[in-house]
Design a protein around this nucleic acid. Structure first.
Lengths: 113, 113
DNA sequence: AAATAATACATAAGAGTTTGATGTATTGAA
DNA sequence: TTCAATACATCAAACTCTTATGTATTATTT
């Protein structure tokens, strides 16, 4: 099962921030591949969605970048700023609580009329 | 904590379908209040988001409607069509699996470099 | 009695985001 | 040498939500 993009939308930033919190620095393509791997192909980030998101996080001061050359190919690494680190924790907590709230909704039995 | 609308976006249809699967028929305002109640105010659906969604689900043939008068006030009830019933199950399953996939991402320890 | 809050529907402009396509270029494998 | 994979990125069109607005009835408060 590949998840509908609707679900991914709401969690894309959370995913990116958490991966960077765990891995110090990553580049865009690496993020797509890591997510694919860790979720056994069920979450596939498209580049059209990822790059604008990375740029938005950078504009918000949550990410810093550094460019590296691998042979002649350029590679842009993203890292969390201090602000980004606390945001990452915040987002992961929020998602955890959100799942709890969703369980209240999805596990309920029919209410009495 | 009130959840960022980003998170809710991806699950709005799932929430609506599941509530209707449990409650036979509900009207828009009732849905907003039930969600608010069941999640202890943490998920608050706005009408501007809910009504277009209900109309979209109806247009997809997942919901049927019937109008009732409570005094002079009109009330529009939504129910699941057969197609809507199977879609509801599908969506709830998808969300459950999505949460599992997200746990693979959010619980991971730093990977070895 | 009057004002306010709650109930209940709904739309619409503007804002924001994603999809899907496209583009460039290097490196490795067949 | 050709194709697939790596690696960046943008853009128009499509989609969806936010915020505000609108209408109207009923219940509650002052």
């Amino acid at each position: 099962m590949i998840f509908s993009s609707e679900l991914i939308k709401g969690t894309l930033k959370t995913i990116v921030l958490k991966l960077l919190a765990d891995n110090k620095k990553m580049y865009g393509y690496e993020i797509t591949q890591t997510v694919k791997e860790l979720t056994k192909d069920r979450i596939q980030l498209t580049e059209g969605a990822l790059y604008p998101t990375l740029h938005a996080l950078e504009a918000d001061g949550l990410l810093t970048t550094e460019v590296e050359y691998i042979g002649k190919r350029v590679r842009k690494y993203y890292s969390l700023s201090p602000k980004g680190k606390s945001k990452a924790k915040e987002r992961v907590n929020e998602f955890t609580e959100f799942v709890e709230a969703m369980q209240s909704l999805l596990d309920i039995k029919p209410r009495l009329a």
